[in-house]
């Protein structure tokens, strides 16, 4: 239709992008400043000198910050795997096997997903202490699985609802058991749904704070958000280290979001649309 250039639109888009992005840009710029540059007044809008010394120093002086990131990976991957396996089976049963209580269970799952995580802390801390699960990957993976299973079940159930039932019915005619149908037919057919859900759960787990804070009390077991937040506790806030560690800790989620933007957006809006 009209070909008039829309400067107004582009101006608003540019402004939105700028507002969304400048804190991250400022963080990255800060990580390339030396200590004098970070505490300079007026602040340096561009690092002078531009230096990699903070990154080098993390690898040589603060390896615990790298350990936090490794912990986040282990917990994130574990929580995603457990959640997809259990949640996938539950979602399949609730959306496909005609259980009489399926509707009630779905609403109940939605309701418990709104529980405030801090309400779980006194009990979880005590039970994890008694069962030796504090400061273990198993413990936090289990806690994150509980936290994110409701979301997973809802998302995958809505995904299964879009698949045709005929193939499964044919397989059942051939005498295949449900577990085999689930593993050999449903899983391969619905991998886009699993990928989207898994990515979102991984991001959720990577970002989760209250449970990771309380259930991992040893410094070496902390996840990235918690470890970086508590890092300054020992002396004055070392922004040069903090900003650099933060950059390293957000790179994984930024990369995942950038590569799988479509799947994540699709998953979030499908999950929310139910």
């Amino acid at each position: 239709m009209q070909k008039r250039p829309r400067y107004g639109l582009y101006a608003i888009v540019a402004l939105s992008v700028l507002i969304s992005f400048f804190p991250i840009v400022w963080l990255i710029l800060t990580s390339f400043k030396n200590t004098a540059g970070i505490y300079a007044w007026p602040p340096q809008y561009w690092p002078d000198p531009f230096t990699f010394e903070n990154y080098v120093s993390i690898f040589t002086n603060s390896p615990e910050l790298l350990r936090y990131i490794l912990n986040s990976f282990i917990v994130g991957v574990g929580a995603t795997a457990v959640t997809l396996l259990l949640g996938g089976m539950a979602a399949y049963a609730l959306s496909r096997l005609g259980l009489r209580f399926a509707g009630v269970l779905m609403v109940a799952i939605l309701a418990v997903s709104m529980f405030p995580p801090v309400s779980l802390l006194p009990s979880l801390f005590q039970n994890f202490l008694n069962f030796g699960l504090l400061n273990t990957y198993t413990g936090l993976v289990l806690a994150h699985a509980g936290l994110f299973l409701p979301f997973t079940v809802w998302m995958l159930a809505s995904y299964f609802a879009t698949l045709p039932v005929e193939i499964e019915e044919a397989a059942r005619m051939d005498g295949m058991g449900f577990l085999r149908i689930f593993l050999t037919i449903v899983l391969p057919l619905s991998w886009p749904g699993f990928v989207a859900t898994g990515l979102i759960v991984f991001i959720f787990s990577w970002n989760e704070f209250p449970l990771a804070l309380v259930l991992m009390t040893q410094n070496a077991m902390r996840t990235a958000p918690v470890g970086i937040s508590l890092y300054p506790g020992e002396y004055a806030f070392p922004w040069e280290t903090i900003s650099t560690a933060t950059v390293l800790a957000i790179i994984p989620v930024l990369v995942i979001t950038a590569i799988f933007q479509k799947q994540i957006v699709g998953g979030l809006t499908a999950g929310a649309g139910k």
Partner: peptide, 17 residues
């Protein structure tokens, strides 16, 4: 994508930034 980034970051680290 630029608009989505703030959502993907951990709130705890956003707060630090």
């Amino acid at each position: 994508l630029a608009v989505l980034f703030p959502w993907a970051l951990p709130t705890a680290l956003n707060a630090l930034i």
